[in-house]
Design a protein around this nucleic acid. Structure first.
Lengths: 220, 220, 220, 220
DNA sequence: CATGAATGAGGATTCATTCAT
DNA sequence: CATGAATGAATCCTCATTCAT
């Protein structure tokens, strides 16, 4: 009883409806608990059609992961302008990230919660996306180091850990912001930016990160 | 066929064996995918005995969550000495946290991945534990602020966000460290401590956090 | 392996086959002892199909009760002509009742034995049907009283008791007739009619009830 | 947690406790739904002891049936004085019957509802008892016929049917009286006595059965 | 005697998946 | 294309029953 049954739609449209339904169902119920029946129902199509187009539950879930992963990285990329200074890029990226996850809570749940919970076919899929973000952050850190004329560059492993920590914090904050009424994407981004750029120690001494871009009131 | 079948053991022992098997199975397969058959098998007992002692799959999972949550918070608490400076307490807590999660990867998977993925009975259970850690970190930040004679205290929501970010980063790093060969608990703790205390900005300027305790070469 | 497996039948037909099998199995084994496996097998379908159409064991049993109850009351109603004198109506009703129960022993067992033995969902269901019969008999007694120009009408509770006794006797006789070879529906009806209308006392004095309708040799 | 655990009681007493618990449980839950666990618990003993004394669930149920059957027939017999006129004997027997079933509802449920519902081992057991009552009633009818100097005696099959109807009516009324608040054993007996002895026909003409014994206000 | 420990066997229910139309 | 009909294979859970102490 999900959507109205429209007969004879082009395949691409039908597939999108199915993926929409699947993302929503997987995101809310989890991979195992979601039933193909419910998904087909929510998509407004018959079950055999789902199998015809998407092959199997596993493939369907993989397709969901791929679509949502692509959407997330695209959103982050679209939010960032390569030429700007590193901290500005980070700030822009974080805002895009938090905005997108807030607008697509089910997709985010699929990526962050569900996909990692279930065995190898899926964890690998999502790990690749995550890696992409980590690499993006890693490069930003490297750029920032260059910009700061920092001589003895940080060891790679150290940088990897920092990027990992930053991405992990972002992921947690995204889930937290989704679950906490009254926390906007912008606030989440600001909190993390402070945390990441200035560090707690500096915050204690009242020196929050203040942005390096144009004075457009980046946060607060 | 998991363990050797030792007949006639006292209830407490059997119960522990069952919980061990359950944590391992739930941690690796997830709540839904784990079967009571596999758990009973791994524990070296028959299924009815599992039901006799632990009641139901739901109750068994809850018991796992409770046990692992208690163990984790106990480990962190045991690693921290209340009298020391805030940054030292944070450092000690992080080391205890990463050490414990590294030593109990399945328990950590149950808490961080599985329990949050499945509906209300369990999410609430684990949220309470997480809250405990967040509160601990929140208080540390407050103490640090006092120690730094910081006058206009940070707004509560800000502090909450920071604590959330820190805990989230720790959680992510724990999972990352578990999955990355060659990353020790100490290194994970050091990375996060740098990140949290100094911030990326300072790191760029070569001013990593260096510890406030006795000069015992806390890290690096 | 009960029936021949005819594939692809319309739903209504399959549902009837399932109910037939269920009535037979429940009637012979009882609610608890009957297994869904046996019912599905006897119906010549797989278990999931039974669940798809009938939902659950409880619902299946309820459906059996409803169908058999409706069939029984319909049979009795069809056997009785409202315009005739009360004793003739009673006679016709009894014959229809005994005929139907003799032709549907399993259905009768479900109604009389099994449904009343198991808790509330079912007992209520069958009680309603029984009440219908009791009311029917109660009204007949009242009509008979009017026909006999009996002045001080019998107290209601008394009439209720009498109707109850009559229905109870009929139920018992139906089961007895089913179990005793050589006892026909007609004989059972005649015995009860004598018993009910004339009473033992009159029978002793050789005055059996002889019918009030046309001289068609109603019995004997 | 049923009864207080009294250690070291003579076997006869323990067995009685078990049977009491079993009758109650079987009467209320039914044979299949009753669990040995619940029975042992209610009896205040351990399960192995039940098996030691009563062998198996089947044997236990059979023992219940036997005990309750014996108690019922004994009660009826004790209520009847062989020398008295037939209708007085019937009246006394009915009163004893309804009194006993009212005082032992669980025992009556075991005999009338549960035992007949389940396969051969039990149905036969209870059928024997029922037969005993039917024979008793059959003989009463024969005696009454002699007393009434009725010449052409009723055919045997006819008498058997009448006895069956009377016993059936009694059984139904017993269950009805148990379920209907405000109906006493005496009232039930009176209703049935009217019905059986006078017949509905006579009742219409205001000639209820009035008893043949001493004028002690037998009913009403 | 009495019991805590333990299990084999079975039963209700669900689900991903496939044909025949 | 689209679907109603159908199922093999699990999965959770319960219960009568038995030993070793």
């Amino acid at each position: 009883m999900g959507a109205v049954k429209n007969k004879r739609m082009p395949r691409a449209v039908r597939e999108r409806q199915m993926l929409d339904a699947a993302v929503r169902t997987f995101g809310q119920r989890g991979y195992r608990a979601a039933s193909m029946d419910e998904i087909a129902d929510l998509a407004g199509v018959s079950k055999p059609l789902v199998y015809l187009y998407l092959n199997s539950k596993e493939d369907l879930f993989t397709a969901c992961i791929r679509r949502e992963a692509k959407a997330l990285t695209a959103a982050v990329r679209a939010g960032v302008q390569p030429g700007l200074p590193a901290d500005r890029q980070l700030w822009d990226g974080l805002r895009a990230f938090f905005t997108h996850t807030a607008e697509n809570p089910d997709g985010w749940a699929v990526l962050h919660l569900q996909a990692r919970t279930h065995g190898e076919p899926f964890a690998a899929e999502v790990a690749a996306t995550r890696e992409e973000l980590v690499v993006f952050v890693t490069q930003l850190i490297a750029v920032a180091a260059r910009e700061a004329h920092r001589n003895p560059s940080l060891p790679d492993r150290e940088v990897a850990g920092l990027a990992e920590a930053l991405v992990g914090a972002a992921e947690s904050l995204a889930t937290w912001a989704n679950a906490t009424p009254g926390v906007s994407a912008k606030q989440a981004a600001a909190t993390l930016m402070d945390f990441a750029w200035a560090g707690l120690g500096n915050l204690m001494e009242s020196r929050p990160w203040s942005g390096s871009g144009p004075a457009d009131g980046l946060h607060r």
